[in-house]
Every structure is written in C-alpha cells, then in structure tokens.
Design a protein around this nucleic acid. Structure first.
Lengths: 101, 101
DNA sequence: TTCCTTGCTATTAATATTGTAGCAAAAGTA
DNA sequence: TACTTTTGCTACAATATTAATAGCAAGGAA
C-alpha cells in the first residue's frame, strides 16, 4: 500500500487543530486583532504558556500573524475561520443537545 | 452585557472538538463503521482509555453511535464531517506549508 | 523619572494521556 | 460441548501536557 496516512496534509492539520485551545483561539480571533493579554482574557484566562505555544503553532502555519496592533488571522487563517462558521450553524441547530453536556 | 460567552453552543462544541483526537476520530469514521479496535488502529494505536473517553463525549452529543456493526457517525455527525471536508481542501492547498511543520 | 501595559519566561502543581496488561462477554470453530 | 478468537473495554503506573502563579524586560505615556 502506498498511502502514508500520517503524512497527509489533513492529518497534520487535524493534529494541530486538535490541540486544546487551538480552535477556540482561532474562533476568538475571527473579529479583528487582539493583544496577547486580551486574547488570554477572551479565552477564559488561558495560561500564557499554553497561549504562547498555540500562537507559535498557528504562526508556523501562517494562520496567525503578529502585527503591531496585535495577533490576527492571516488570509489563510480567515479561510479556515470561514469553515468554522459551518460549525456554528451546526451548534446553533443542536443547541439543546449541547446545553446538557 | 448579557452575553454569557461560555454558554454559547459553539463554545461547548469547540471545547469538545478541541480535545485531542476528537477531530481525528471523526475523520476516520467518515467511511463507515469501525470496531473499537479497528478505530484504535486507524488512529495510530491511540490508547483505549482515551479512545473510550472520546467516544463517550461523541455519543453524548449524538455525533457517534454504537451499532451492532461498530461505531459510526450519526446523521448529525455526518453533517459535521461534511464541514470537515472543507478542512481537507484547505490542507491540500497548503500542503507544502503543512509538510514542514 | 515613575507608572502602566505588553509579551512573554520560569517554576511548580494539577491533570490528561500513554503504554501495557489483562479480563469478561460474545461470537466463531471443531 | 469445549476451545479459541475477537471485542470492548478497565486498571494502573509512567510520562507528557496544561494550569496557576509570579515576575521581568522593553516600550510608551504622563
């Protein structure tokens, strides 16, 4: 068999998105730039250690960028964020289900 | 302010999808049912403890179902999986980027 | 100069995940 | 029937990740 599963791009992506807080950070960044501390606050006071690790991951993938006015999604990052809007729709539709978890 | 951020359905969803292996498990399940052990293998021999924890989460949200022929996505779960196809497209487009991470 | 804010790093404690062994129930085989 | 496999886990100790807290150096405002 020639398919090296773990080498597939989607696997790498799922690996990173699957780290705790990654999705949430991207979600918070959907509305403009945040300072490090503001981002921390919007993510329920996520520890600076973890936030910094996640930002590093996201910067490597050019999903997030550190500009003078703060951290923000790149064009590529925005594309991903748009996909996440689909998640929101699903979540809103299944709100009752999610409420009791 | 009246918005209780953490109560929003999307937050609950992101919380669960953001746990390690959740996305990957859903991804593997996209093609039909798997036995517990087969699923473990397709997820790089993920430990049974964690697999079982994640399956519990997903069952609670009615994203996954345990049928006689194995674990599989529910109708709701399939909708989510479809959203994830967008991720695959992104990943394939950014393959070079992902390859060096 | 003094006081904030910002973007972190360091350190230790708490929590989650892994790796491995193995067991009980169900299914298949002789 | 008795034996073997497969399946879906649980138990437990080891390791890795994350959290919580303190605090510091650099930059800007007053």
């Amino acid at each position: 068999m020639s398919d090296n599963k773990s080498a597939r791009p989607i696997m790498v992506l799922l690996d990173i998105l699957g780290k705790r807080w990654t999705l949430r950070i991207m979600w918070e960044l959907r509305n403009g730039p945040f300072t490090f501390r503001a981002l921390q606050e919007s993510c329920d006071m996520l520890s600076p250690t973890t936030l910094n690790n996640r930002l590093s991951d996201l910067k490597k993938l050019e999903i997030v960028d550190h500009q003078p006015d703060g951290y923000q999604l790149t064009a590529k990052g925005l594309e991903l964020a748009k996909i996440m809007i689909g998640l929101t729709k699903w979540a809103d539709k299944e709100a009752t289900l999610l409420a009791r978890s």
